[in-house]
Structure formats: C-alpha cells, structure tokens
Design a protein around this nucleic acid. Structure first.
Length: 439
RNA sequence: GCCCCCAUGGUGUAGCGGUUAGCACGCCAGGUUUUCAUCCUGGUAGCAGCGGUUCGAUUCCGCUUGGGGGUACCA
C-alpha cells in the first residue's frame, strides 16, 4: 500500500488536514506500507517556503513521519505538460476559448443537467473531452459505490491557455506516477474524483482506490474556524495539548470499532485501523473531550517527562519540584504557569481572595500559623502539616479557616497546589516572609 | 439551479432485522479532598419525519426535511 498526504501550503495545518494526514499515516503503518508527502504548490502565490515549513512543522510535532518526500508538485510541471500534449494529440482533450460565461450560455440552451461540451479551437484553455454517455463509477473504501453520469459533467479545464496544468490533471498524474494505491482525502474531493478518474482513463491508466473522509465541523455545525477556539495544529500545541492526545482524539473523530474505547494508544490505533470502521458522517470538533483525553495522557506521564514538556512549553528550567506537586492538577501544559507562577513571581493579585481570606477575622489564624511554622526545627512536609493541623485544633476552627488564609498569603489566590507541599517548596524564609506580608 | 455525500442523546461513537438502544465526553446531583483539579457513585438525554419491505424495523428501500461538498483558465 502506498498512500499520500497532499496539502496545499496555505499556512498552518488545519485540524481537518491533520486528521487526513493521521488517517493516511495510520493506514500506511497498519499495512506496513509507504506514506508519501507531497506539497500541492502549483499555486505560486500561496505556496511560500514559510507556508510549506508550517505544514512540515505540524506533522513533525504530531510525530506523523513520512517515508518519501516532501515532493513538490510544481517540480512535476514538465511531466504534466507532456501529458496534456499527449491528450491533445490523442484527441482526448482540446483547446477552446470558451470561458465560464460561455459554459453558462451553453447550459441555458441545453438544460442545467447537461454538461458543457466545447468545440475545438486553435487556442485557449485545454479541456478534457468528457464522454456524453456512460458513467464514472467510484468505488470508495468508506462510502461504497458512487456513480456520476458523465453527461452532467462540464468538460473540465485541465490546463490554462498558457499551457500550465491545473489541479485535477496534476493530482491524477502525480498519484499515478508515485504509484499511489489508495487516495485518502476529504469528501470535498469526491466530485473532483470523477474528473481525475476521467483523466486517468483518457491516459489509458487505471485509477487507484479511493477513501473519502467526512469533513470536520465546529461546535455549531459550521466549518471549523478560529471562532471555535482552535483551527490549526499549531494552535492546539500552543494551548498545551500533547501530540499523543491529539492523535488519539483525532483518530476517534470519524473512526470507531466494536471495542468502543476512548483512550487508545497510537500503536494500538495502528494495529486496529480499518477503513470499514471509518464513519461516513461529518464530525464536530469538541475541545472539551480533547481536554479530558489530554488530561488522562498528561497524568500518565512520568515526573521527568512531564517536567521536560512543561519546561519546553513555559520556556524556563528548574520547574521539576513544582511540576511534582502540581502535575496532577493540570489538564494541559498551559495550565501549569497560571497555577504555579506565584512560586517565582510572588503572590498574584486577586483582590477578592484577599478581601475574603486576609481580613481581620483571619488574623488570629494567620498569626498562629506563622508562629507554629516559625518554631519548626525542620522544614519537611510532615512537620509542616503537623504544625498547621495543630493550629486548626488549637484554634478550634475548620481546616479551611487556617489553610485558605495561608494559601492566599502565599499564592495571592484561592487556587494553588497543596498547601503543605507549597510551603515546603517555597522554603522557610520565603514562606514566613509572605505570611508576614499578609498579616 | 444542477451533481454528489451525509443523518443514533448537546458532542464522539457501538449497533450491522427481534437489545431494558451500550460506552465515552459534557451537564446535573452526591461522595472523597486543605483550595482547585483529579478520582468514585448515581442521574440526565437519542434512533429527523413519512411511506414501504417484513411476522417484526434504529438497522433494508424510497421520498421529504435538514446539514455538508462540488459546480474556477484555485487547490
């Protein structure tokens, strides 16, 4: 099996594109086949090196490795032109100056369900000659059989008047030349498939197998966009999601088997992937579920691994001790700093928390806590905990009446890692200093 | 307009003629917990509609409705 992922470099890799790439990758790895990466860069204005780099960057981050490429479709232009010439010579294509308006006019005369058929001229764009009868049948691994009546299709333009090849020709030829056995892409290309199959037939070649994936939608059922929180792989990365979690989630968006499990490792995914289990209905991207999956993966990580990832995400070192006490409280890498930043930055500014927990009514507890901590002979977790629990008892109040004021004194807010752990990590001097600042 | 694809709770899915329609996320309610988060328990909610086929349809067929894609000398 040889599959390919062929994005056009328009910027960051869209989540839908990432899912297409993932399915291609899974299919290839499952069958021990070859995954080819090809950049559809024939549109020279959009195809900048930067845009291409962004696609590769996203694939690398997702750890979807390719076996061949990245190939540049633009590099194949000579071959595309040769094919066009051959098609012209064989009478399977013709030149015509007919434009969109002419096609419209033709339809007004012949009926809307009658495809445009032009008459050959010496110049103009090259159109493929579509048979007036018969049908093009596409056997799709996911959708079964789809039949297009040839009579409905307008003769498609396969090359501009200047001879430069167009998408539907280039794709068909490139897939053929690369020996692609299975074309896995979004359903938005299903209609194009008819044209591509016709190109292949005109060349006297056989089409590959096809598998058209349903499209991804946003929470409102509309096209996925920035409004929905994230639309690209890069955005997912920047929001602190783990690549393995994204792979797991994306795989589940449009694929599911009898086991119906939610947490499936990538290796297990490779083992189980099967086109028969790919869904036909469009799926909505639900970030809440991604978060949950991400949390599960994140909590499975070792302290060392998680620390390394948090440090890379935050962009600073020495976070190990804090990660150790806060790791289980975060669902994404992005949540670490808001939760633990106070350790380095000092108490954050949360007026409401101060008002509630650092008022006159809390002073007795706070002072008692400070005194108990100050008298400790060692600054270890058990001692710290014993000291504070002792204060709770001696004051005869609820644990919260002591712990929360201390927490706010240290962190500035009501949310933090465990209070004993935080105290220990901060150290005696810093802890007492912050306590003093709050009294 | 024309062509094509799709349709199980709010979301992702299991189901492949006979099920109390299962699981997960979310949400709600409890519990654990020093806050938050996690975790545990329970609950909530679904086969788009109408016709067929059949002893029997969520499941097969058709239509309708509703989504989506295509219809470029873009990819």
């Amino acid at each position: 099996m040889r599959v390919r992922f062929a994005p056009s470099p328009t910027g960051q890799l869209h989540i839908g594109g990432a899912r297409t790439a993932l399915y291609n990758w899974l299919a290839a790895r499952h069958a021990d086949g070859t995954f080819v990466l090809r950049i559809e860069d024939t549109d020279r204005e959009r195809s900048t090196p930067e845009n291409t780099a962004q696609i590769l960057e996203a694939l690398v981050w997702l750890d979807l490795d390719w076996d061949e490429g990245p190939l540049s479709q633009a590099d194949h232009e000579p071959r595309h032109r040769a094919v066009v010439e051959q098609l012209l010579a064989d009478g399977r294509a013709y030149r015509t100056n007919a434009n969109a308006d002419d096609v419209r006019t033709w339809k007004d005369e012949h009926g809307d369900d009658r495809g445009f058929r032009g008459t050959p001229e010496d110049e103009g764009a090259v159109r493929l000659r579509v048979p007036d009868s018969g049908e093009t049948v596409i056997e799709d691994l996911i959708r079964g059989t789809t039949t297009f009546q040839n009579v409905h299709l307008d003769d498609p333009v396969i090359a501009r008047a200047d001879g430069s090849p167009l998408y539907n020709l280039a794709v068909a030829v490139d897939d053929l030349d690369a020996g692609i056995t299975d074309v896995i892409r979004g359903v938005d290309h299903l209609s194009n498939t008819q044209k591509q199959v016709l190109v292949l037939e005109a060349m006297g070649e056989k089409p590959p197998r096809y598998a058209h994936l349903s499209l991804l939608h946003g929470p409102d059922g509309k096209k996925l966009s920035k409004r929905h929180g994230a639309e690209s792989v890069q955005e997912l990365r920047d929001k602190g999601y783990l690549p393995e979690a994204v792979r797991n989630y994306l795989a589940l968006l449009g694929w599911g088997d009898a086991d119906d499990e939610t947490l499936i490792s990538t290796s297990e995914l490779v083992k189980r992937f099967d086109f028969a289990s790919v869904t036909q209905a469009p799926a909505q991207f639900d970030e809440a579920k991604l978060r949950w999956i991400n949390g599960r993966y994140l909590h499975e990580l070792s302290d060392e691994d998680l620390t390394a990832r948090v440090e890379a995400f935050v962009g600073r070192d020495g976070l190990g001790p804090a990660v150790a006490i806060a790791g289980e409280k975060i669902q994404t890498l992005a949540e670490f700093w808001p939760l633990c930043g106070f350790i380095w930055d000092g108490p954050s500014d949360d007026p409401k928390a101060r008002e509630t927990w650092l008022g006159p009514e809390n002073e007795a507890a706070l002072s008692a806590a400070r005194a108990a901590l100050d008298s400790l002979s060692d600054w270890e977790l058990p001692s710290i905990e014993a000291a504070l629990r002792g204060v709770v008892e001696s004051q005869g109040v609820k644990p919260n009446s002591v712990f929360q004021p201390v927490r706010v004194a240290l962190a500035g807010t009501t949310v933090s890692p465990g209070i004993f752990e935080t105290l220990e990590l901060l150290g005696r001097e810093e802890s007492l200093k912050r306590l003093d600042g709050a009294i």
